Amino acid sequence: MIRSLLIVLALSLPATAGIYVIDGDTIVVGREHIRIVGIDAPETRQARCDAELRLGLEAKARVLFLLQRACGPLAKADAGRCLTIQRQPAPDRYGRTLARIGVGGRDLGATLVAEGLARPYICPRGRCPARKPWCEVPAP
């Protein structure tokens, strides 16, 4: 009886309860993992070099700042009130929702690209190009 009640309560919780930032291009809203479509941010968990890790942590911190400014404390945030989420019709190959995220009337991905914390990443007809490495040293 108690187990059934807990399951019903868990299923009735709003899907937008809380926001968690995984990295510069992935967030979790409630239980939904969302990959920000149209950008590629440096990795933090599987960074290939120190430069990628540093920039990845900077991108994550920027996303945290922008979301906290718009939503308040993220653990209790109601994403439906502070974000606009434009979901794509199909998930990515990892099962994440692909979406554009609007924060304070601005596209979050475009903001990160403009600030040099992400690159545009367009997948025409669902065919994504190889990601460019973040560890390349530009020629002098």
Rank of each mutant, 00 (worst) to 15 (best):
A10T: 04
R100H: 11
G104M: 12
T84P: 02
V21P: 11
V103A: 01
A47S: 15
V8D: 05
L53S: 13
D107V: 02
G24N: 11
A99Y: 04
G72I: 09
A90E: 05
A130E: 11
R87A: 11
A51Y: 08
P140R: 03
A10Q: 09
G56Q: 12
T97G: 01
R69V: 01
P133C: 07
A15Y: 01
D40M: 13
C123L: 08
L108T: 00
I2T: 05
I2D: 11
L57W: 04
A70Q: 13
A15D: 14
A51K: 15
R96E: 01
G105C: 06
Q86M: 01
A70F: 02
P138H: 09
C71M: 06
L117F: 08
W134C: 06
G72A: 07
V8L: 15
L112S: 05
L5W: 15
F65G: 02
E32L: 11
G80D: 13
Y121T: 02
Q88H: 03
I36S: 08
L74Q: 03
R125E: 12
R93S: 03
I34G: 01
G24F: 12
M1K: 05
E52R: 15
P129Y: 11
I34Y: 05
G24V: 12
C128Y: 09
I2M: 10
L13R: 15
R127C: 02
R45A: 08
C128P: 13
R35A: 02
I7L: 15
G38Y: 09
W134N: 09
L112A: 05
V8T: 12
E43H: 14
W134T: 11
R127K: 10
T26I: 05
A99S: 02
V63C: 04
L66D: 02
T26C: 02
R48T: 06
